[in-house]
Design a protein around this nucleic acid. Structure first.
Lengths: 205, 205
DNA sequence: GTCTATACCGAGATAGAC
DNA sequence: GTCTATCTCGGTATAGAC
């Protein structure tokens, strides 16, 4: 424990500071979006100054991208730990797994709902990141559905990309309602019902 | 024509100024969200000063609510003109009609996607407006579905509110993907397919 | 690694002239 | 009805001390 925390001079060790900043940034970006979040508020929460934050991240937009990358890495690790396929979100079940996980951390859900809407503007610092994310997500899901067709589990006459978009859309749309309603309904159950309804229409036989 | 536009003094007539401000505000809020939009940019576009804008709307947040109210009124009028039921969005078909209409004006779609995400924060000036809007929307759709059950067209064992949420979620989620992709797919067709898939699972018989 | 101090910019809003 | 001028605040980022 002492190995990483021996103070040197008048400042605390700081190896953990970067992580503390990212943690706080997740909360702030989720609550206020990117634009309304301020480095000052972030710094106050961490217990350092604005300049201290900018020592670790050269700009606010770089911090945003680091937050997104960090979260992606955590997701990957959690998926591996849970025995999910290494390729993220390759299967429909994986979305349900994600929803179950995210219901425990509404802050992360808000982070993505708020930022993905903000990032629609093509000069937003995370615009490309989100555009790519959706392409990848729907592409992988579509591949997974086509594999299901080959295996004979799914009807061959469906538009796999369209269904993939619907599955992702159901998740995003329900999240908005869940957050706006103050988490007034059971999000995982709602998503499972929606996915089941979609899948029921495309199963073979 | 001259009835409303005789200049008095050195300023132009200005009865139309309020409408011009609202028009420009729709574009700005859609493009930048509420927070990133500035009265200065708005004013520049209209051709007046910031103070001129604030002469018509006492504050920026009041302008936002006026924009939302104005849009609601336009929707109502368009619905009446199209022979849609006066109660907005009481039927599933009405959503399709809205999607068809909105695909011609991606700015309005962006307005709602961006603002409804921004409004998740409970201190956002339009938070209550959006929370109520979703309650009303899903409530009316749910009522409509229950009427379908009574009429024998829809299976009696479905959760009408859950299905209503799914129909709204599909629309919201597809809109996000549509905007982020640069309008790369046919939104009305995608929504109709999604709605059909959901409805196919709940029709009686 | 973190501080203080500061430069610089742009926001929303108000007061009072025309 | 619109202007100019100004106030006040808050933002990001930089420079240099410790």
């Amino acid at each position: 424990m002492a190995a990483t925390s021996k103070p040197r001079g008048r400042y605390s060790v700081g190896i953990a500071t970067r992580a503390k900043i990212i943690d706080a940034a997740v909360r702030h970006f989720a609550r206020y979006g990117y634009t309304r979040s301020s480095l000052a508020g972030l710094a106050r929460e961490v217990g350092i100054s604005e300049a201290g934050v900018l020592h670790h991240f050269s700009s606010k937009s770089e911090l945003l991208l680091e937050v997104l990358r960090h979260n992606e890495e955590l997701d990957r690790q959690a998926m591996v730990a849970a025995g999910m396929p290494a390729t993220p979100l390759a299967h429909v079940d994986v979305i349900s797994w994600c929803v179950d996980r995210n219901v425990e951390r509404p802050g992360i859900v808000a982070l993505f709902v708020v930022l993905s809407a903000e990032a629609i503007a093509d000069d937003h610092p995370a615009h490309a990141w989100f555009a790519q994310r959706y392409d990848r997500l729907t592409g992988l899901l579509s591949d997974s559905l086509r594999a299901g067709i080959t295996a004979g589990a799914i009807r061959a006459d469906i538009d796999s990309l369209a269904v993939a978009r619907e599955l992702v859309a159901a998740s995003d749309g329900l999240q908005i309602q869940w957050l706006l309603s103050g988490q007034a309904f059971d999000l995982p159950a709602a998503y499972r019902a929606a996915a089941d309804r979609i899948l029921a229409g495309i199963t073979a036989g």
